[in-house]
């Protein structure tokens, strides 16, 4: 390892306090996600802190100012495609009406880097889904048809990525906007395997995956969740789309001080 690499590490480890945003504690538990449960066994989720709001354009601007390799003009295509931060007029010109809207047209690599520079990480698919199955009153509202309908309505609404964060109601955990504005990147989005989705070279889907039968949908009625998993399965890590942003999480045992 050379000195240059070490230098970069230390530059990132400098505290970036202004970027720290309010986090909410999500108490762990077990649940059955739509996809990814092996043989329909419950998935365990540990306690974690989650950003109470999605990362905004203003937050991300601060990040690229400190980490210029993530500027539009500097970023390598292998980490973010040509639509990266497409709403920005240049490397640092964010339209003022977007400051408090969720940052979008962001790649998985960029989202991951943002979280790491704050000592956080992207949520796993299971963590995200666990936090997002709560409505305002209960931890798991998935059986409530109104909860599902409400989410699907927002999927039908155009240009929700232009809305401001933190305007709606907090969910049970004190988290805003898990539904309604943008879909969000997850750390292990590439673990979502939906057979027959991808490049296939004309072969049947049998040969594509090892043990593919073991991981499947358990509740096709949950159409909103199905949409999210399908989006995850269809994206590559350098893809940037209008309807996808992100937020960060942190393990609950890492002594993170929740800001009131």
């Amino acid at each position: 390892m050379n000195i240059k690499n070490l230098l970069w590490i230390w530059m990132c480890l400098l505290p970036i306090q202004t970027m720290a945003q309010e986090m909410a504690l999500v108490r762990g538990g077990e649940f059955l996600p739509l996809y990814g449960a092996v043989k329909n066994e419950m998935v365990q989720v540990k306690d974690f802190y989650m950003d109470a709001k999605p990362v905004t354009h203003a937050d991300f601007l601060e990040f690229v100012q400190k980490n210029p390799q993530w500027k539009k003009s500097m970023v390598k295509k292998i980490f973010a495609d040509e639509r990266y931060l497409t709403a920005w007029d240049g490397d640092q010109q964010v339209p003022s009406e977007l400051h408090n809207s969720p940052v979008n047209n962001i790649s998985w690599f960029a989202a991951k880097a943002y979280c790491e520079c704050q000592g956080k990480r992207l949520p796993t698919v299971d963590e995200w889904e666990y936090a997002a199955m709560a409505d305002e009153k209960i931890k798991d509202a998935r059986k409530d048809s109104l909860y599902n309908v409400k989410i699907i309505r927002t999927y039908e609404k155009p240009k929700t990525h232009l809305l401001k964060v933190g305007q709606g109601e907090k969910n049970y955990w004190g988290i805003f906007d898990l539904h309604g504005l943008v879909w969000e990147w997850t750390q292990d989005f590439n673990s979502v395997i939906i057979a027959g989705e991808s490049r296939n070279n004309g072969n049947g889907e049998k040969g594509l995956f090892c043990a593919s039968g073991a991981v499947g949908a358990n509740d096709l009625m949950n159409y909103a969740a199905f949409m999210r998993y399908a989006i995850r399965a269809s994206l590559k890590a350098n893809h940037t789309v209008t309807t996808k942003g992100f937020r960060c999480v942190k393990d609950a045992n890492s002594n993170y001080l929740v800001q009131k």
Binding site: G36, V38, I78, W108, F109, Q187, D188, N190, S191, V192, I193, S198, G207, L208, F209, C210, A211, S212, A214, V215, A233, K236, A237, N238
Partner: peptide, 24 residues
């Protein structure tokens, strides 16, 4: 490993302590 898999759009998921489901 996850970064490398993501560059290749290779999908995988650990389904038990010794088994993974993965794209070929």
């Amino acid at each position: 490993v996850r970064d490398f898999a993501n560059i290749l759009a290779v999908k995988y998921k650990q389904i038990s302590p010794i088994d993974f489901s993965h794209s070929n």
